[in-house]
Amino acid sequence: MIQVSDLVVSYPGAKRNAVNRVSFIAEAGRLTALAGPNGSGKSSVVRALIRRVEIIGGAITVGGIDVRALTHGELARRVAVVPQREDAAFPLQVREYVALGRYPHLGLWRAPSSLDAQAIDTALSQAGVSSLADRDTDALSGGEWQRVRIARALAQRAPVLVLDEPTTFLDVAHEMAIFELLASLARSGLAVLLVSHQLNLVARFADTIVLLNEGLIAISGTPAEVMKADRLESIYGWPVVITRDPAVGAPALVPLRRPVSL
């Protein structure tokens, strides 16, 4: 479980705090979504969690322990992250790549055990990429690459899984497949924290939505509580209506046309 309390993150030279007194909980067994417009502070929360940026105020705890009290290795055994950006400089074989998820568990001699091999196999199969194990990472499609990255995080066997925009650049089917995978991982007991600006998908899959705007929490709650036309309109600065998706009845956002006169 991740608990974020009154978190403040600030970048040097910025006019306002990137994250300003944000509090929420991502519980085990649930899919929690961190949503909001571009620049709303979503990724900064993730960076603070993995201590890429300094926590100016407040705290992030994982399983009750402040992340600042953990070593990098201890943190990596508790939280697995799929960062937004990752441009591998050189290709690796998929299996070698997924095996890197075991790094936080390796002992002094860095020798992988049979437990590591088993964790790698399980992760490959959970993410549905066992058949790609012998391919090189630079020979994968966008959808395959995202699943392989998730497999790498699953190999970490951490109770918390954090993903930063895992479906950017993916088509409808691959996007849905990733969301289904995340929902089933949450059902299997993981605390899944998903950063995404795909509000409609988030509304269908997430148990809780935390909607950030300009570093502050704008609304948080169940999809039904968050998907309110008037609030979303003011947050995104664009006219919208809320309808129901015809298949499952989840709230869905439809942005309206607002033609530009040249």
Binding site: I50, A76, A80, A89, Y103
Partner: peptide, 18 residues
């Protein structure tokens, strides 16, 4: 192995405890 991970970029390295 640390070099393998560094080659993936700093964010991923941080997430793996490096």
């Amino acid at each position: 192995r640390e070099i393998d991970i560094l080659a993936l970029g700093e964010e991923t390295a941080a997430s793996l405890g490096i």
